[in-house]
Design a protein around this nucleic acid. Structure first.
Length: 572
DNA sequence: GCCGTTTTCGGCCCGACTGTTTTCAGTCG
């Protein structure tokens, strides 16, 4: 039986290809909507199928139920296969270009015979796009810029796409009887926001059977190189991957070596050599030239007279000096997090009810969850106007009476309009526990205008924090032009917190900005922006990013217990 | 393609913006 994720992917692919083919808008939307319904499902999709209850789901009738059933049992369906023959796959890449949608892709294909990114780039460079109705020179330039941006982003894959894959591979390896220890290394272990490849390190007395078993894993597309201790392969998703298998005695030095970063190693080896030590992939050699046994990474640093440097800090950003003088931060961890300050419900574009979100947060051991649905300017998401918001606040207050040891906070994600005003009146905002403000429109303002706009929003005394302050979508959209340092300065001055949006497609603020913010004394909120109960689990990505920014629990708004948080927000 | 105290056809979350137009199509959230 196929994974529900495959079903969602198939429905979305059908929608994309139908749209390119010029199919009726509402038909396309029916497939998109079905994909959303399936992905938000809390019941077991396969079970619903077996009971013949798929067409009970909202937006799913006999035709879609049939197709979902086909995909569940066979991995595909006749319509999808036909569309794959009729619509070139290269056109799907074009949909990822900002400013290009299904209709335009269809025109480009039918009028100019463009079937992929390269052909589009060539046509734009040759000035052939402006021949199309609705196209001009400016749009042609925008297309070229969009292609360049897409290429730049695709060199590295967002952490959120690779980490689960790496964890699954680690799990598969750990199950092998010959494997002692195994872990992911490289930039994934350092929680870097994107990665070029997956690095795994394992310990085994005899590497050969482990390498054999690994080479046969179904996730691999092909093995590129195979040596005594190493396999290089490419996953079916096209991501390169290295596994090294070393003898148990060399595991910790190998893990450390392959965790990096290169810059950290350069500095660490410099420090070590000044003290007569040498470090390589397999061992730590003392001033006497003899290897020192290393049973953990802590020991490696300890033998060199340094405090343990967590992987997230190993970037050559002053961590060696700090480890030497004992001034490394006590990094925030998942256990410090007491709640989540940015979440959506089915009152707007979230998948689940207030109660379901509250229960999920409570089950995670949280003390609180802020409901911050979209405000009215985000019309497509069903943004709340003052009346509906007040009704939601009432519903939250009522629900709180039934939730023991847990509190839903009534909030809003207000839109920062083009001029920096908000799309709800101050008197409404004053009734809320927490006000999150964010930019969802006019992304292409110049830097000065955008910066003034966000700062004006922070100057509103009701605004508690700015969500995803730079607006980027990893691998999809560059940040808008904004002077982050000016925003940090204004945040410090106005006492406004800045969000580290934990969604792995955002991670915004990014690590380096988070570090500058905390140094300026700005409070940070690590928030998931959950639109689904499962998104609450993305918190670890935000924490990873915060750790890379040297963030301590005391810097984090949602590391505060409820009463302290309410006092900080000025609401008791 | 789905759906129905607007019920078997004719609707289907909506408003702003952009780049192209001279009244609008396409995109975005």
């Amino acid at each position: 039986m196929t994974d529900p994720i495959r079903v969602v992917a198939a429905l979305e692919e059908i929608a994309d290809r139908l749209e390119i083919r010029g199919e009726a808008f509402f038909k396309v939307r029916a497939y998109r909507r079905a994909a959303q319904v399936v992905s938000a499902l809390t019941e077991d999709l396969a079970l619903l199928y077996q009971r013949g209850e798929l067409d009970q789901l909202p937006g799913i009738g006999p035709a879609l139920a049939q197709k979902i059933g086909d995909v569940l049992t066979t991995g595909t369906c006749p319509l999808l296969e036909r569309l794959r023959r009729e619509v070139p796959g290269g056109l799907l890449d074009l949909l990822a270009l900002p400013g290009i949608g299904g209709k335009t892709v269809g025109h480009l294909w039918r009028s100019l015979g463009i079937e992929n990114l390269d052909a589009l780039e060539e046509a734009a460079q040759a000035g052939r796009l402006r021949e199309l109705p609705g196209f001009g020179e400016k749009k042609e330039r925008n297309v070229l810029a969009a292609i360049a941006g897409l290429r730049r982003r695709r060199e590295r894959v967002p952490l959120g796409a690779l980490r689960p894959v790496a964890l699954a591979l680690v799990e598969a390896l750990a199950a092998h009887p010959a494997v002692g220890r195994v872990a992911m290394a490289g930039s994934l272990r350092r929680w870097r926001e994107t990665a070029k490849d997956i690095d795994l390190v394992a310990a085994a007395e005899d590497p050969a059977p482990v390498l054999d078993a690994f080479s046969r894993l179904e996730q691999l597309d092909r093995v590129v190189a195979r040596g005594e201790t190493k396999v290089s392969a490419v996953l079916k998703t096209g991501v390169p991957l290295d596994l090294r298998v070393v003898r148990p005695g060399a595991y910790w030095t190998a893990l450390h070596h392959f965790t990096g970063s290169a810059e950290h190693h350069v500095q660490l080896r410099g420090w070590a050599s000044e003290r007569g030590f040498r470090i390589n992939e397999y061992e730590l050699l003392g001033p006497d030239g003899k290897p020192r046994p290393v049973q953990a990474e802590e020991e490696l640093y300890g033998l060199l007279g340094l405090a343990y440097v967590p992987p997230e800090l190993r970037e050559g950003g002053g961590e060696i000096e700090a480890a030497a003088e004992g001034s490394l931060p006590r990094l925030v961890s998942l256990e410090d997090i007491r709640g989540d300050l940015h979440a959506h419900t089915d009152w707007t574009d979230g998948a689940h009810s207030l109660e379901a979100m509250a229960r999920a947060a409570k089950d995670r051991g949280y003390q609180y969850l802020a409901i911050t649905d979209h405000a009215r300017a985000l019309a497509m998401a069903g943004g709340l106007d003052a009346d509906r918001l007040r009704r939601q606040v009432e519903a939250i207050r009522r629900l709180n009476e039934t939730l023991e040891g847990f509190r839903l906070l009534a909030g809003i994600e207000a839109n920062v309009m083009a001029d920096g005003s908000l799309d709800l009146e101050d008197e409404v905002l004053a009734e809320l526990d927490v006000v999150v403000a964010s930019v969802h429109s006019h992304f292409n303002q110049d830097e000065a205008t955008m910066t003034r706009r966000v700062i004006r929003a922070m100057e509103n005394p009701h605004v508690d924090l700015i969500a995803h302050p730079t607006g980027r979508l990893l691998g999809a959209r560059d940040p808008y032009a904004i002077d982050v340092d000016a925003v940090i300065e204004a945040a410090a001055r106005t006492g406004t917190a800045l969000e580290i949006n934990a969604h792995p497609d955002r991670l915004d603020l990014r690590d380096s900005h988070a570090r500058r913010a905390r140094e300026a004394g700005v409070k940070l909120a690590i928030s998931t922006d959950a639109h689904h109960v499962q998104h609450l689990g993305l918190m670890e990505y935000g924490v990873g990013t915060a750790r890379r920014g040297w963030v301590e629990p005391g810097d984090v708004l949602n590391a505060m217990p409820l009463d302290e948080l309410l006092a900080h927000l000025g609401r008791n």
